[in-house]
Design a binder for these strands. Structure first.
Lengths: 154, 154
DNA sequence: GCTTATCGTCTACATGCACATACGATCTGT
DNA sequence: ACAGATCGTATGTGCATGTAGACGATAAGC
């Protein structure tokens, strides 16, 4: 490797924020389509519960970067649509055990398939080597799994 | 018909949006520090003008993903601080030619250096091969330079 | 000259969200 | 049994932002 200075690069946040906004805007119509009928927040919740069920609403909210009070209406709607279960924990009846219903999992998978198909199309448009794309996803995954506090300067 | 040997991956937007939020939050205190005295929007404007001067405010707003009316107060402040020039185009006196002052360039470079130092620290924490990081930045750059309209599904 | 369009600016309005607070139900420690 | 903490919920406030319209100055086409 040449120990040259990197070419002047733009800031991560200055690139990531508009990019995230643009991709989210591109997803919205797909999610809102009658086949899925999801909001962005609702989809975020389903995605999170897809991995594993969550014990409290506060924990769920923190994990998807939402306010504790913010997701109440979201959960109400998802439950009304029969996509999630919200049952009080028999061991601690203050907390709600949150999990996906079979229908919720189906809806989430279907929406995710449509969205990832579009994302693959976008990535292919870049005309970059597949190895680059894979490295990109690896780094992105690593960054996402970090605790945001570690980003703060000392 | 894509190859299916990838592990199930999360959605790009679902990863990028929280990540961008976290990085932006980490940048804010650095920008607000007395040495720089910048808001996030002000910094965005400086970063954009750092590359090249822009002919109209509307174009600048569109390029950094802001509203046309949104950046007026931002430009006012930057001009008051002597960081940008905003002179009416003699060829079309409706539009304002926007450019960085030497002091504006200095301030932008200084802020950017502080921010990128922190970003480099974050990237190193990931303990991933340097080639992965470089590929990540390449793909990110390519995605950022795309027209957001190309992200929309047909 | 007249009409139409564009740019920057200003104003008003609606919205989405974070933040704080309060309350009832419930759990925990003593 | 009692005090304090926690969880879900409801409510209000404030801020940042998007959207829309109107205005004056200016430009371009007929």
């Amino acid at each position: 490797m040449t120990t040259q200075n990197h070419p002047p690069r733009r800031d991560l946040a200055a690139m990531l924020v508009p990019l995230g906004r643009a991709l989210a805007a591109a997803e919205t119509p797909t999610l809102a389509a009658p086949a899925h009928g999801l909001t962005m927040w609702g989809y975020m919740v389903l995605l999170r519960l897809q991995t594993m069920s969550v014990r409290t609403q506060a924990a769920l909210a923190a994990e998807i970067g939402a306010d504790k009070t913010r997701i109440i209406a979201v959960l109400d709607q998802l439950q009304r649509d029969g996509l999630i279960r919200r049952e009080p924990d028999p061991a601690d009846r203050r907390v709600n055990l949150l999990s996906l219903t079979p229908e919720g999992r189906r809806r989430c998978d279907s929406a995710q398939a449509a969205i990832q198909a579009n994302e693959n199309r976008i990535l292919e448009q870049l005309q970059l080597p597949a190895a680059d794309i894979e490295a990109f996803l690896r780094v992105l995954e690593a960054l996402s799994s970090r605790d945001p506090d570690e980003f703060m300067p000392e």
